[in-house]
Computed example of a mutant assay.
Amino acid sequence: MGAMADIWEKLLLSVIVIVVALLTRLVLRHVIRRSVAALVERGRDRNGDLGAKARSILARAGGLSAERHRQRVETLGSLLRNVVDVVLILVVVLTILATFGVPMGPLIASAGVGGVALGFGAQSLVKDYLSGIFMLAEDQFGVGDLIHVGDLKGTVQEVTLRVTKLRDPSGTVWYVRNGEILTLGNVSQGYSTAIVEVPVAIDEDPERVQSVLRAAVGTMAEEPEWSEVLLENPTVLGVDSMSEGTMVLKILLKTGPDQQWGPMREARARALRALAAEGVRGPILPGVPGARPGV
């Protein structure tokens, strides 16, 4: 009778352990779910300080896409839920075994020795996975982004917790371990800026040249062809440098991520045509017959 009572007592304790574990699982899953929802909501507000047009362009470009952010956060939430399940299962199994008198000392010692050996042998693997988790949590980059990793520059083809796959401009596919990524630049996140340099003769009137450039490129963002690329109208920054017979003025462009190349070419062409139409001379080259000396 005493043995049966002891067995029933152990079974009752086991049931209590399972119930507590299930309640803990519910609480932790609720916390994870609320955290994921909060992070998703915060992702929607990341462009709140920008104008409606800029937010629309950036969202389409994908750098700050709320949908991509949502997918990343939910993936991380799924990973955390799996970790919670595995940990709780291990705790419940070990607790129930201890309740029924299974000697835990040798088991724990063996697990400890095996864990130490595995830790030494798989340090780089653990480092890769941890780095992948943090990159996922921080939304550092995603599929389709153009990134710089050390000396490599390429478009992200695939992202896993251990390896990131890139394709460079030559078409070569590179596999980069996440634990080896120490510095990373994301060209496709946020927005891109570009500077267009316009050289003219050093003795031209700077104010006149700036006025011509503003008339040429100052309303590009309002034109249908460029309104989906430029975040704002180009800005003529003024004179940047003067040397020998050349005065260099600069134009600033602000576009969606990695979309600056087309507007740069167009701004150069417009500046060239406008300056030629207004009779603004190009740089004065030393030694060229008929060229006037620089001022």
Rank of each mutant, 00 (worst) to 15 (best):
E225T: 10
M1A: 13
S124A: 12
E9H: 08
L97Y: 14
L249K: 01
S110Y: 14
D203H: 11
N186W: 00
I18Y: 00
V126T: 03
T75P: 02
L79F: 12
G256S: 05
A276P: 06
P103E: 12
V295I: 10
G119H: 02
M264Y: 13
T164W: 01
D203L: 05
A276F: 07
T160S: 11
V83W: 00
G119W: 00
D49Y: 09
G48H: 12
K53V: 07
T246C: 06
L79P: 00
N178S: 06
R46T: 10
L253Y: 05
G171H: 09
G2S: 13
V93E: 10
Q260G: 12
A221L: 06
G144P: 04
S124T: 10
L213Y: 08
V93W: 03
V113G: 04
A216P: 07
W8Y: 09
E180T: 07
R177K: 14
V196L: 01
L80F: 06
L28R: 01
S170D: 13
A291E: 11
A216N: 04
V20W: 01
L285V: 15
G238D: 00
A61E: 05
V212W: 03
H30L: 11
R265Y: 14
D240P: 06
V198W: 00
V126E: 03
L184A: 01
L253N: 05
L64Q: 12
E41D: 11
A194P: 04
V236C: 09
Q210Y: 02
T219N: 15
T193I: 03
T255V: 07
G112Q: 06
M247C: 02
F120I: 12
L130G: 03
V209W: 00
G218W: 08
V20C: 04
M264E: 15
A137C: 00
T255F: 03
E207K: 14
A111Y: 07
G142H: 10
V295W: 11
T160G: 08
V149R: 05
L152C: 04
M242F: 09
A215I: 02
S124H: 12
A37C: 09
A274T: 03
S35M: 05
R68M: 09
L152T: 02
S243C: 10
R208T: 13
Q140V: 15
M247R: 07
L252A: 02
D49T: 09
A267Y: 08
A38E: 15
L252R: 14
G43M: 05
V212E: 04
L23V: 04
L252D: 04
L12T: 09
L152N: 02
G279I: 07
Q140W: 06
V27C: 00
S110M: 15
I147G: 10
V40E: 05
L230Q: 01
G238P: 00
Q123G: 13
L136H: 00
V236P: 08
V248S: 06
A37Y: 08
R34E: 10
R25E: 10
V248H: 06
V187M: 12
R72K: 07
Q260D: 14
A122S: 09
T24I: 13
V116I: 11
L285W: 15
G112D: 01
D145M: 07
V209E: 01
V116M: 06
G48P: 03
A291L: 06
R70E: 13
